[in-house]
Amino acid sequence: MRNIVPILTVVAAIVILWYGAAVKLNSAWVYDQATRAGAKVPSFSQVVTETMNQERPVLPTPHQVTAELWKSTVGMAITSKRSLVYHGWVTLSATLLGFAIGTGLGVLLAVGIIHNRAMDMSVMPWAIASQTIPILAIAPMIIVVLNSLGLQGLVPKAIISAYLSFFPVVVGMVKGLRSPDQMQLDLLKTYNASAAAAFWKLRVPSSMPYLFASLKVGIAASLVGAIVGELPTGAVAGLGARLLSGSYYGQTVQIWAALFAAAIVAAGMVILIGVIEKGTLKRMGMVR
């Protein structure tokens, strides 16, 4: 709780900076309007009030974004095409489906890697190298190719999400499943434990902290994947579509609202995983 004051101070400073930047960036339009109307140069206070509530500002002010967020979440039926809850759900469902697929496959591959030496030596370098490749660049292609195969809507986006969350989980889980040291493994051997028992009773529990760390990375990557996956389909539905249509039509307030909605969703997912992590690790006696 002692940390709350500095965090709030920093957030307040950011908001103040934001207002300052909004005045500066939006003032050009105000001056422009004044010259066109032939009026005299507006005073500074006039400029400030004018920049606060423009319809298409260069930088929307925080209260405009908040108002737009409020209007398009609470103030609208969630079935409406303009409701951010609707678009957020479209994105979130693809994210969650992809995240589940990616995590499941990632864990399976990790289990294969720790039990099979050939797989470890051949797949692991590629899994690590794949982290350095801008995978997201393939996203539009996957969408279009799957579209031509007759798959559209949720599944192609989920595949991209799965792909992005897959590698962090593989790398994290391999590390985690290998984290028990030789002493512990030897102890189980003296108990005459089978490989399966060693796996379930020692390796899996000790991999949990690693699993949760990579889940947090993975869910954030999944959301990015789902958002980017929505771009090439031509802005139909989803947060990415809101970003794209906003950028086509110059609706800056809409872009910022969609951006904040995405941020809130991402933060919510990470916090949720954090809570599950804390609960699980506490039950397992791993939190000191």
């Binding site: 260069v58 990015v224 958002i227 970003l243 906003g246 872009i255 951006l259 995405a262």
Partner: peptide, 29 residues
């Protein structure tokens, strides 16, 4: 230390966000 305590959680938070979403705004600017 005060600024660090404030900036680090904010920085960690922002690092997890889908920042690529800021691209249309930057293209506009």
């Amino acid at each position: 230390p005060f600024l660090q305590k404030g900036l680090l959680p904010v920085g960690n938070f922002v690092a997890a966000l889908p920042i690529v979403g800021i691209a249309p705004i930057m293209v506009m600017w």
